[in-house]
């Protein structure tokens, strides 16, 4: 038996040990970020979720001005927590487009009546087709789209007051 060979099992284990140690101190991040950042939005046309509001389509977002795209659903609990921050953005003059996932008009109306309506337009995505096409993996999620219709930033989870400064900075960068 070669002398180095007898250390092989210990070395193999030591490697595993280091791996485990590192894995413990970096707990797995359950978030799956989109790979579509920096890419143009796919062509889509989502029908209006409510009779008195517009639907959402790609053409609207290529009008030279940036847009904030919010993906939500009335059945999603954390989506209700966003309302404050979204309202603040709406008041700051940011156009917020919304995609409602697997939702019904009556439920959306109830949701908006209860938490306020920061949206300029709401399209309904019954089969999550647009959501999947832009690499979003849940609700709520938000995307910043620049004037050419390119996805510039993804925010996963509810937008809270504490996220606003960062979002506004990125917004200004896109606008500039």
């Amino acid at each position: 038996m070669k002398p180095w060979l007898k250390w092989l099992p210990l070395v193999a284990f030591a490697l595993c040990f280091v791996l485990f140690r590192l894995a413990l101190s970096h707990p797995e991040n359950p978030v799956v970020p989109s790979k579509q950042i920096g890419k143009p939005l796919p062509e889509f046309h989502l029908p209006a979720a409510l009779p008195d509001m517009a639907g959402v389509e790609t053409r609207q977002m290529k009008d030279g001005k940036p847009h904030f795209l919010n993906i939500f659903a009335s059945w999603c609990v954390p989506c209700a927590q966003e309302s404050g921050a979204l309202m603040a953005m709406h008041d700051a003059g940011i156009p917020i487009m919304a995609i409602a996932i697997r939702d019904k008009p009556a439920d959306i109306t109830r949701f908006l009546n209860r938490y306020g309506n920061p949206y300029q337009a709401i399209g309904v995505d019954q089969g999550s087709q647009v959501q999947l096409a832009i690499g979003s993996s849940g609700v709520p999620e938000s995307f910043l789209i620049d004037g050419q219709g390119v996805i510039r930033y993804q925010h996963i989870g509810a937008v809270t007051e504490s996220d606003l400064p960062q979002l506004m900075t990125i917004w200004r960068q896109i606008t500039a």
Partner: peptide, 9 residues
Amino acid sequence: FIDRYGDWV
């Protein structure tokens, strides 16, 4: 799918 969600998917 990989173009949207990475190798993870």
